[in-house]
């Protein structure tokens, strides 16, 4: 069940990128980054079981952010990196701030189950805050290095496949390691942490390979 949903989410991310690019070109891709970062602020706190290890939800979204970043760098150059990171950081911080501020407001007695669930999930929960900080630090840092690695592989090989897979294999491993260490050290044992890093890395690589489809489609499209 979980594997099918992961695949469906990966396809949804791919369709979203193509759709937004067709509608808004460069702006569309930036909006994609903003949407994925915003949804991540809600979903990444939940853990699911994959191959016996805990994995955060929304991994297709993390991979989607990197794929969008690669497409932007491929089409519009390395100067866009700063703007990509700012878009990611601003959308994450704003959504997290607003949603958690609402969690602090006293709930009504109507629709109590939903209100309690909302307050339990958000309302500045400390473990959520740690996952959030781990997420934004690891992703923004790696977005920066990813763009440079992508750009330099592209310059030396000039093959779309090499630059995408090369940057993905290196960057996703470092991102997974930083995220898991920042978010879950002292909560799980070192064996579990290692397993979580490996599973997170593998899923992101698989999603990244599925993501080559929108990369090819979008790069081949011509801007009007």
């Amino acid at each position: 069940m979980n594997y099918i949903i992961l695949l469906l989410e990966s396809l949804l991310v791919c369709c979203m990128m193509i759709l937004f690019y067709k509608q808004g070109k460069k702006r569309g891709l930036y909006l994609c980054v903003a949407i994925m970062a915003s949804i991540l602020c809600v979903t990444s706190f939940k853990l699911v079981d994959i191959l016996g290890f805990q994995v955060n939800l929304g991994l297709p979204l993390v991979s989607g952010i990197f794929i969008s970043s690669n497409i932007i760098v491929q089409k519009y150059g390395l100067d866009e990196v700063k703007k990509i990171i700012i878009t990611f950081l601003m959308s994450s911080i704003l959504v997290f701030l607003f949603i958690n501020l609402t969690g602090v407001i006293s709930r009504s007695e109507y629709n109590l189950v939903s209100n309690l669930a909302y307050d339990n999930l958000f309302a500045y929960n400390l473990s959520n805050l740690r996952i959030f900080v781990g997420g934004i630090l690891s992703t923004s840092l790696m977005l920066y290095y990813n763009s440079y690695i992508y750009y330099y592989i592209r310059r030396s090989k000039n093959r779309l496949l090499f630059s995408n897979i090369g940057s993905m294999l290196i960057i996703q491993f470092i991102e997974s390691t930083i995220f898991i260490i920042l978010s879950y050290t002292f909560i799980y044992s070192s064996t579990e942490l290692f397993g979580m890093i490996v599973i997170r890395y593998l899923i992101k690589v698989i999603v990244g390979l599925v993501g080559l489809l929108p990369v090819y489609v979008i790069v081949k499209m011509k801007d009007k």
Partner: peptide, 8 residues
């Protein structure tokens, strides 16, 4: 997301 919560 906020539409899930009813506030007083």
């Amino acid at each position: 997301m906020m539409s899930f919560k009813t506030i007083k």
